[in-house]
Design a protein around this nucleic acid. Structure first.
Lengths: 346, 346
DNA sequence: TTGTAGGCGTTATCAG
DNA sequence: CTGATAACGCCTACAA
């Protein structure tokens, strides 16, 4: 699997009769090259279809490879899709390319990708898997490798982190439902090995507590954070005798799964069940879905990820890390019933 | 922006007292290294946190960098999202990583990314933008750079191509609508600078012709292939005096845009308008959307892309290229009304 | 079993 | 203005 014979700086040196260092000079268009020889060399470059080898270049310049590794769990999760898109864009502005690493939710893959990225001399790594492994973070810290964590464990770890306040945002969601007259509120929690899952659950609990609503443990379901998870949890929820009137879903995906099952059972949103999601993926704004949700400012987060990561690349480990917490906002759509406005008939 | 001082093979040579070639030997675990020295060296490697530099390695071995460039128009287009996911997976199996290049539908970006990928010594390029530029293909052929085209211009170009038969598939879609009793069928065509857009339009025309249905030019709208495109075209369509009963959309996205506007106007699918899409993105299977559509076997396509690309990388340009055409199938859901089964009341 | 030397494609320093 | 020459981090005969 050898690559075809590359044509190098030497080939064009031979072709023109100049030395390779002169060729190198016109390549980097240094001054002090006679116009005529510059032209000759450039002509030869075109003729021989020469392209400078960035790899060799970065080797001697000891400058970066201009690769950034982006590790995510699942690119078909639309929330991450949007992250990828914006990160790629932001990286491009700094002349960097993204090496896409999809772990498919498998822990070992995360570790493996990290090693690959280190060996391939990525300049930095963005860890955006939903359940970042502690040991991997420790490993990266120990290696003194530039990296940044997205959306996870911001309090505990000594690394740069870009995220939102999941706890607070979850409280906001619950308070919103309460304000709309709901008090029987279920929570379809995310994976409890992810900090976002944990924090949102805690926020839910606190939200209820603040309004003196007693927690009904039967109203809490742990899901895997996918639409399938929401779908399955809804099945169980519908078996409850004392059913809730509203559901706070771990994320929009889960919320959509809920809608799926309700539709199958000819139950209506929001009349039978109110739903609030999390993330505000593009899907949620479709009229056919029209999900009320908590919006993450994904574009801003993405550019901060790149900004902070580059800072880290430049400074190296300093002991001081950045924790950037973005605000969320509630996007009101039609999936939550305002019970205060409902005329009571009975 | 220098990277931190890397520890190299020489550092661990010094540390252990052996020569760098001996170190190199244990790295590639060659035989003929005394067990005890091997152990010492390995210990030192761990101690100094040494990682072999794949980049430097590939320089001297003249073997590939194990990078594959994937150029797409828009990763948030769910169809491509799924492509990316499967391509990444297939590449991983061959120990390759994906450099993700999102052109954002801008032609110049495509050219720019190609240059970057060549300079960074990618092993090959997957061109999966919706409107691949002829000149870029010619450029790559001329450079003798390994590449493969996905979903475009398979007849015309002398390059490896993986695609479906858009013409035939479009005919199938139209025939399906006709079989369901529709004869006033509109087509929301895709960009006519993309071959898929052209071919699907031709297939639509031929499908009508085969059933002796006269073409109504007012029923043909060119869209940009997005949900917004479908949304806007539907606005115009609703202004028609003689309205169609069914719409064949360029892709599922466009179809969803149609649904959006219909929903806004309180029009129903399929009772007021039947819709058939193209691609079968995951979204389309949601109960809230439930779109009848033409399915592309994206997983299989992705693995063929990688297989054929690797073949090309190995053989280099041979003059003979592969054109692999996948079959599509129709996925029946609820967005098409069977007019034959409708009881006529009037 | 281990070490030496040359080279991969560039850049960079310093003479000429 | 132009051209040797020594790196960059690693591999690979060939020698010891």
């Amino acid at each position: 699997m050898k690559t075809k014979k590359r044509i190098t700086i030497i080939d064009i040196a031979k072709d023109t009769g100049f030395s390779k260092s002169t060729v190198s000079k016109v390549l980097r268009n240094e001054s002090f090259v006679k116009e005529s020889t510059k032209e000759k060399i450039e002509k030869s470059i075109k003729k021989l279809k020469y392209h400078p080898d960035e790899i060799a270049r970065s080797l001697v310049k000891k400058t970066g490879t201009n690769f950034i590794g982006l590790i995510i769990s699942d690119i078909t999760n639309y929330f991450y899709t949007e992250l990828v898109r914006h990160v790629e864009e932001a990286a491009k502005k700094r002349n960097c390319n993204i090496i896409l690493c999809n772990t498919n939710y498998e822990e070992e893959e995360e570790k493996e990708y990290i090693n690959i990225l280190i060996n391939k001399r990525a300049m930095g790594i963005i860890l955006a898997t939903s359940t970042v492994e502690d040991k991997n973070i420790k490993f990266l810290i120990n290696e003194e490798f530039p990296f940044i964590v997205f959306g996870n464990k911001w309090k505990k770890i000594n690394a740069d982190v870009i995220t939102i306040d999941n706890f607070k945002s979850a409280k906001i969601a619950v308070n919103y439902l309460i304000a709309k007259g709901h008090y029987k509120i279920a929570h379809f929690a995310g994976p409890q090995n992810s900090s976002s899952g944990q924090e949102r659950l805690k926020g839910y609990l606190k939200g209820l507590e603040d309004s003196y609503i007693e927690v009904n443990k039967k109203y809490i379901f742990e899901t895997e954070g996918t639409s399938k998870g929401g779908y399955e949890a809804t099945k169980k929820l519908l078996e409850l005798l004392n059913k809730p009137t509203a559901i706070f879903a771990y994320n929009d995906f889960v919320a959509i799964g809920i809608m799926e099952l309700l539709k199958e059972r000819s139950l209506e949103v929001p009349n039978d069940y109110s739903i609030i999601g999390f993330d505000d993926i593009k899907l949620s704004s479709l009229k056919m879905i029209d999900l009320t949700t908590i919006k993450q400012p994904i574009t801003e987060e993405a550019s901060e990820i790149i900004r902070v990561l580059f800072k880290r690349i430049e400074t190296g480990p300093t002991g001081k890390t950045d924790k950037i917490i973005f605000d969320t906002e509630i996007i009101e759509r039609s999936s939550v019933l305002d019970k205060n406005k409902v005329i009571k008939i009975s």
